[in-house]
């Protein structure tokens, strides 16, 4: 049996968090992951307060287990959503796309466990000083908004930099990945792409099919010109977008306009013409649609087998 400080901290059976994927991670997916023994997470993305409140209440009706809300700090509704998680007494808040320091006092005061996603040791130290319960060290293998450092480089350095539990994310979708994360010093993992194809995930079937079909080299980064790179599946839309980024005749405004709403088009409409199918590099290893419970149980069984077997090269 695998049991880590993350299990105790969050009151969960398996040290596995589900990534807060915008337009994808709703109450049903979060509840399914929490019911399976991990920590499900609702993505508040750019949504208004009413939608977030409704999703939180829906998740509570679907599971008695703890779950979290991922707050995207660049959201126009961040102030409102930051207050709603307090009112609704959410167990865990994870944050992305920025520095959560200004909200942390209110969340911690409400007894919420705050676990920011960090892409550098500096950010990890800053959020821990402000009271973070743990940090998610997310490498650039992830889907969606990504930092520069890879998971294998980032995780051990974050572990050395802070004295709270570290959750590894980016490029993890099987027991080998989790065993490697443990070897790097992490005591838990967060997986997004692996849960995107869960049966309980309401993302458009075209999106799931594209992830299932993807091979190792089928993702790329767009948004490099804006300074906010995003990992997506390669399609014509992504290639055209990347070309426009290198075209100095295309203004920043025109570029932003071109990309606007593209994740929603992918996730909700399955639109391959104008959709951004955000997805991690690990998509190549994800082969079938299974329930959240099947995903977690099989991955944890494999993890246990690997770590108890030790390293075959040690004689």
């Amino acid at each position: 049996m695998i049991h880590t400080p993350i299990c105790d901290l969050l009151g969960i059976r398996y040290p596995v968090l589900q990534g807060g994927m915008a337009w994808i991670a709703d109450a049903e997916l979060a509840a399914a992951v929490s019911n399976a023994g991990g920590l499900g997470i609702i993505s508040a993305m750019n949504a208004g307060g009413d939608w977030v409140r409704e999703q939180i209440r829906k998740a509570k009706s679907l599971t008695s287990q703890p779950f979290g809300v991922n707050i995207m700090l660049a959201s126009p509704h961040v102030e409102e959503v930051a207050q709603i998680v307090v009112e609704e007494q959410v167990a865990v808040v994870t944050t992305g796309a920025g520095n959560p320091s200004k909200y942390m006092k209110a969340w911690l005061g409400a007894g919420i466990k705050v676990i920011p996603v960090v892409a550098s040791t500096g950010m990890a130290k800053l959020v821990v000083r402000n009271g973070a319960s743990a940090v998610i060290a997310e490498g650039g293998e992830s889907g969606g908004h990504v930092g520069e450092l890879s998971t294998i480089v980032l995780v051990p350095q974050v572990c050395d930099a802070v004295d709270v539990p570290v959750i590894a994310a980016g490029g993890i979708a099987d027991g080998r990945g989790i065993a490697a994360a443990f070897a790097l010093g992490a005591s838990g993992v967060q997986m997004g792409t692996a849960f995107l194809v869960a049966r309980e995930c309401n993302v458009h079937q075209n999106y799931k099919d594209k992830v299932l079909k993807a091979k190792d080299i089928d993702t790329m980064r767009t948004g490099i010109r804006s300074g906010h790179p995003v990992r997506v599946l390669k399609n014509q839309f992504a290639r055209d977008y990347a070309k426009m980024e290198f075209d100095s005749n295309v203004t920043d405004e025109a570029l932003e306009q071109y990309g606007a709403g593209s994740l929603r088009k992918a996730a909700v409409e399955g639109d391959n013409q104008q959709g951004s199918f955000m997805c991690g590099q690990i998509a190549g290893m994800i082969q079938e649609e299974r329930t959240a419970s099947e995903i977690i149980k099989s991955i944890m069984a494999q993890t246990e087998q690997i770590v108890t077997g030790g390293c075959p090269w040690v004689k």
Binding site: G98, N99, A119, S120, G122, M123, K125, L126, G147
Partner: peptide, 11 residues
Amino acid sequence: LDSLDTVELVM
């Protein structure tokens, strides 16, 4: 400098 650089600068 990007946002991660500025966080480090503040520290």
